[in-house]
């Protein structure tokens, strides 16, 4: 049972972080379909930091350095989306899809090159982080507390306060609802959208490193992040683009994802003799059903996905 709770919380943290990232981008008016790729690159940043960090540093340094690497790389990578979609008015769907493919391909290429350079016989795309991973975990009576659970809660509070209680957040949301009106009162729409995209890069990068730290102590970058970026988008839609609702949605989706990891530990689930593939499918099926019922009255930002053109009215 503790195992289920632990996995639910850690997967929910991943989904919450990434969905909040998507939330910022969409409120500014840019659909960020590239979250999956941003997660991979963020995970790469964090994993590289963990690999090259000298052993024996205090845990807090490891945690912050790893998070720093992840969010920095995530942010830099998301600027590719910004340039194309904000400045060059490119189709956001194509660019997002390209970023997803580029993230996995680029990360695999780089990690393989690093591994082969270190050892000519090693052509894998795996980075190990057994030792530094311990810095993230605190064992409380069998329950492995991961610092990212706290990070996710802090991120949620920040997102809520920034979006609803600050001038910046309200302006950001105005750019996603009606950019022309926002522009007419002196808000720089391009700058606001850039802010939205870069923040989503930071959140996505953090979510990425959190994801690869969730269960295992090494990551094969060829696998990408198995559709988690898109699952997070489903969480965001289910949460109706509101941070608090997104948090609840993330908990629900996290639970289903966790079940597929630990169902064999529950005798009654194990005895049902359902193939593991069914559990793997669960989060996706649930999100499809949920979307089917909630999308009709969607409260999506009105101007999302439409490139802002100053000359248009």
């Amino acid at each position: 049972m503790t195992l289920l709770l632990q996995y639910t919380l850690i997967f929910s943290s991943v989904l919450l972080l990434v969905a909040l990232g998507g939330c910022f981008a969409e409120h500014s008016g840019v659909i960020n379909l590239g979250l999956e790729g941003i997660m991979v690159i963020g995970a790469l940043g964090g994993a590289l930091v963990m690999r090259y960090l000298p052993a024996g540093l205090p845990a807090i340094v490891v945690v912050f350095a790893t998070m720093g690497g992840a969010l920095l790389l995530g942010m830099i990578y998301s600027s590719l989306l910004g340039v194309a979609c904000i400045n060059f008015k490119a189709d956001q769907t194509i660019v997002g899809t390209a970023l997803n493919m580029l993230g996995t391909a680029g990360a695999t290429l780089l990690v393989k090159a690093i591994n082969t350079a270190a050892n000519p016989d090693d052509v894998s795309s795996v980075i190990q982080y057994i030792e530094p991973k311990k810095a993230f975990l605190v064992n409380i009576g069998g329950f492995e507390f991961n610092w990212f659970m706290l990070v996710a809660i802090v991120a949620l509070v920040i997102a809520y306060v920034v979006l609803y209680k600050t001038k910046f957040g309200l302006r950001l949301m105005a750019c996603g609802e009606h950019p022309q009106a926002a522009d007419s009162v002196g808000i720089n729409v391009y700058r606001m959208r850039w802010a939205g995209v870069l923040i989503s890069g930071v959140y996505g990068g953090l979510g990425g490193i959190c994801y690869i730290l969730a269960g295992v102590s090494e990551w094969k970058f060829e696998n990408g992040v198995a559709g988690f970026g898109f699952l997070a988008l489903a969480v965001m839609i289910f949460g109706q683009w509101k941070p608090t609702r997104i948090a609840l949605a993330a908990l629900l989706f996290g639970l289903f994802r966790a079940l597929s990891n630990v169902y064999s530990g529950f005798p009654f689930l194990y005895n049902l003799n359902i193939p593991s593939n069914v559990y793997n499918m669960m989060p996706y099926i649930v999100s499809l059903i949920v979307l089917a019922f909630t999308s009709k009255n969607s409260r999506a930002p009105k101007a999302e996905g439409i490139p802002y053109d100053k000359g248009q009215r």
């Binding site: 008015k89 189709d91 194509i94 899809t97 996995t104 290429l109």
Partner: peptide, 23 residues
């Protein structure tokens, strides 16, 4: 020296650039 993912890399860069076709 490199892995075969080079071709994935190139095709994903090409898709990214296809976003600029309109421009």
């Amino acid at each position: 020296k490199y892995s075969s993912q080079i071709s994935d890399l190139i095709s994903s860069i090409i898709i990214y650039l296809c976003g600029f076709v309109l421009f």
